[in-house]
Design a protein around this nucleic acid. Structure first.
Lengths: 339, 339
DNA sequence: TTGTAAGCGTTATCAC
DNA sequence: GTGATAACGCTTACAA
């Protein structure tokens, strides 16, 4: 009686109880029919569906999540989204998650690990069923909190034998090694490194430098640009590199975006790529293959990365055994025209 | 007694009650100290903070949202995110929302309005405090549902005098008009339209065509490419256009990405841009200004769009008066080198 | 197969 | 300024 009064007073989002009344069943049966129809008599399910239709019922997952301790929510933390590198991965996560009945809470956290910790704390208050973190460097307090909460975690875009929980990524150092070896094998010896300063990019740079330093006749200079890496920054950085170092014969960039800018800057200065100067990128972004000259780069499967991350998470949440909690997706060289 | 047993049995996410016990206060006082410290004695607030620290308490917003009917959650529906056009807007929304204490539930819905309706239905079950929808064309059932739920809605990236609730965007037709007028004023008469097929792009195309058809001496041909628009598609589409139509003197593209592809294809065929062929894009994506030649395009403030959308939504939710529920952000021509 | 009772962790509301 | 009580809308656990 009292409840019915309340219901009509509010503008009425119908509840399970309304549906139950409409169907002449108990709320619990309606709940079952909706969440686990297999254990309800088909005729009853049909009656429920009819009542749902009639009332325009939409479940309240705040209530459902509170009661069941399963929110069907996955938190995703990335440093940036206006960065072609991450976007495909995010979309893959979103797609895969949607297929499995989860929603994605997306947080753009920047590159600071302090801010990340604060951010994740607010995210945890949503009681997500799992969380995706970019990179493997996180504030110790954050790690502890996650482990404490026994929350399924996937770290992405990086590699370590000791993830918080699960991981899917690749070795940035080795990707850097590959780029350096490739250019060395092509006979280049005077390198310019055009680089942004995010953690993973710096790992790749280290990978490059490690190889270059093994060659005595080999020299390199660096130019660093800010975040996010844009084509403009690529041009500017290239300008800086070329200004003081006319002897350069190869440029390695931390991303294809920078490489594109570098190539354009070279062209605008009348320097032929790759004849006079080789330029190499990273990421195999969609424009790399059809640029002029096509950009030689190192590719990774960004989409698969997101798909795997989401799948691992959903599996773990649902108690499906995960064959290997650390997935190394690797990378491969795309030799094209620019180097 | 019974409760305390339960608490220790589980792996213990501490609750308000645990904090209250620690602080020697009632849960209600702790809740107040956390959500509205102004009405609690400062000394009490301090005690609460200490207890929060000690217990490692993280609020449960599922419970909070259920009780208060405010989820502090905003649902955002976009057709794509691996599309440079939307990404800045999404990041702006995310940033602005975060500053105001909201989280973003991001859903990638594709371009179908049926799937959008289904998707929004699942989103509504999260009881978001507001929702951002891309475009103004939505399934009637969806519109009804939203109006029924009395949910604050912002439609973005489009313009109409009759939004569901609020809107921030610009007129695609008029943007199309502008492009066409500009190229006509430059003396071009033989146009190629290189276009994707999403709704908003088609509006811009119509805007172009409307102007072109007012000129008797003016002719145009079209090439359409799929979604998402990539540089590769730009090159392919351009190839198709050039193949059958050597007389073209200007190409208008539905986006800068396509324009970039078009320019490259022209260059690779030895056609000088803009001397032999003018190419114009749309969006003023970050590479447009520093491309070679720099791409002439129509710019809109994608970041502001997101910021405004988020701000309007947060204001409406918090009862702050909104001066104008329909914000036309306009657009402007960026005359550069390619046309 | 269906129903009943008791929470889930918070906040609104009304006392004190 | 602080506390007790009753929701919020759903699901778990158990009974029928």
């Amino acid at each position: 009686m009292k409840r019915e009064k309340l219901r009509s007073e509010r503008s009425a989002a119908p509840t399970l109880e309304d549906v139950a009344r409409e169907a002449g069943l108990s709320p619990m049966t309606v709940s079952r029919a909706l969440n686990n129809p297999a254990i309800v008599r088909p005729a009853t399910v049909a009656r429920v569906m009819l009542a749902v239709e009639k009332t325009g019922y939409i479940p309240n997952m705040l209530a459902g999540g509170l009661a069941s301790r399963r929110s069907k929510l996955i938190a995703v933390v990335v440093p940036q989204i206006n960065n072609n590198m991450f976007v495909d991965t995010i979309q893959a996560i979103s797609d895969t998650l949607a297929q499995r009945g989860y929603h994605m809470l997306l947080c753009v956290g920047g590159y600071g690990s302090d801010s990340e910790a604060a951010l994740v704390a607010t995210l945890l208050s949503r009681k997500p069923d799992g969380i995706v973190l970019t990179g493997i460097h996180h504030a110790p307090a954050l790690k502890k909190r996650l482990i404490n909460a026994a929350l399924p975690v996937v770290e992405i875009w990086d590699l370590t034998p000791t993830p918080i929980d699960m991981l899917v990524g690749f070795s940035h150092e080795k990707a850097g090694n590959l780029s350096a070896r490739f250019l060395l094998s092509k006979g280049h010896r005077r390198f310019g490194l055009l680089w942004t300063s995010d953690q993973r990019a710096l790992l790749r740079k280290q990978g490059v430098i490690d190889i270059l330093q093994q060659h005595n006749e080999c020299r390199f200079v660096e130019a660093s640009v800010g975040l996010p890496a844009t084509m403009r920054l690529g041009r500017e950085g290239m300008q800086a590199l070329l200004a003081g170092n006319p002897e350069l014969d190869a440029i390695i960039c931390s991303s294809d975006t920078l490489a594109q800018g570098a190539i354009l800057e070279a062209q605008s200065q009348g320097i032929a790529v790759p004849q006079q100067l080789a330029v190499m990128g990273f990421g195999d972004l969609d424009f790399a293959a059809c640029h002029l000259p096509a950009i030689t780069t190192v590719a990774i499967d960004r989409w698969l990365l997101g798909q795997e991350a989401a799948t691992m998470l959903a599996n773990k949440i649902e108690g499906i055994t995960i064959s290997d909690p650390v997935r190394d997706l690797g990378f491969w060289l795309c030799e094209r025209q620019s180097a």
